[in-house]
């Protein structure tokens, strides 16, 4: 009996990453800009997304959403009020979304009809960081009520994001939110990341955010065209 070593050098999430790659290609071909929203539970992802969807639709864009939760379809019902097509992904206890859950919830949708597709991830600041969903933009949200040091406590997720959004900015004064400390902490774990301040309740910052999102989509389309 002899001992042998077998070299593998294989990523554990290769299967997910391959599927995410295919999804990204599919989204690019359809011209749908996909944003994956990640945050802890209670940050206000759903309120933020509902308002974003409503505004995009008002401006003549076609926007849809996939929303992930461990249980219930409550969030999908809330988001449907915006008039956007919405599908709920119930993960039955799984703490994050994976690429195959996205792929299996696209059936029957003509992606080419959409300008934007939002994926609201399961509220969790740890696990979603490892899973590529084929998105063009990963947005991490942080509310003013959560504490300025959240980025330092959860660096992998903040580092994996392309964009940070501070939510519930209308409560900033009441909770003595330290804006400059938060910015410094976000930049420490993800240098150069753009940060937006918003309130889905009062609408503060929302118009600028939606404008920015549309600009990012144009940049993305240009990048695809120049690659072809």
């Amino acid at each position: 009996m002899s001992t042998r070593i077998l070299d593998l050098h294989q990523g554990i999430l290769d299967k997910n990453d391959r599927l995410a790659y295919e999804l990204r290609r599919e989204f690019e071909a359809a011209g749908v800009y996909v944003a994956n929203l990640v945050s802890s539970p209670g940050t206000g992802k759903t309120a933020f997304l509902e308002r974003t969807l409503s505004m995009l639709i008002e401006q003549g864009c076609m926007a849809a959403a996939l929303v992930g939760d461990l249980a219930t379809e409550n969030d999908a019902r809330r988001l449907e009020r915006s008039g956007a097509p919405v599908r709920q992904i119930v993960t039955a206890g799984i703490c994050h979304l994976e690429a195959n859950m996205i792929a299996s919830h696209l059936d029957g949708w003509r992606l080419a009809d959409f300008d934007f597709l939002f994926i609201e991830n399961v509220g969790n600041l740890v696990c979603p960081s490892s899973y590529d969903l084929g998105e063009a933009l990963r947005v991490v949200l942080l509310s003013v009520t959560e504490g300025e040091d959240k980025p330092l406590k959860y660096p992998p997720l903040f580092n994996s994001a392309d964009l940070a959004v501070i939510t519930k900015i209308d409560l900033a004064e009441a909770v003595e939110f330290d804006c400059s400390a938060t910015y410094a902490n976000i930049q420490a774990v993800c240098p150069g990341i753009p940060v937006w301040e918003t309130s889905a309740k009062t609408g503060d910052g929302m118009a600028a955010w939606v404008e920015y999102l549309k600009r990012r989509k144009l940049d993305w389309q240009q990048a695809i065209r120049s690659r072809e």
């Binding site: 042998r4 070299d7 420490a188 993800c190 150069g192």
Partner: peptide
């Protein structure tokens, strides 16, 4: 993982060379 900056100049940098690995390297078997 709290400060992404250069050792020499201290400036922030987002260019990650290593640190995201989640990889099976090898199996030892009989």
């Amino acid at each position: 993982v709290q400060q992404f900056r250069c050792d020499r100049c201290g400036r922030p940098t987002a260019q990650i060379i290593q640190g995201k690995e989640l990889e099976i390297i090898s199996l030892e078997y009989t």
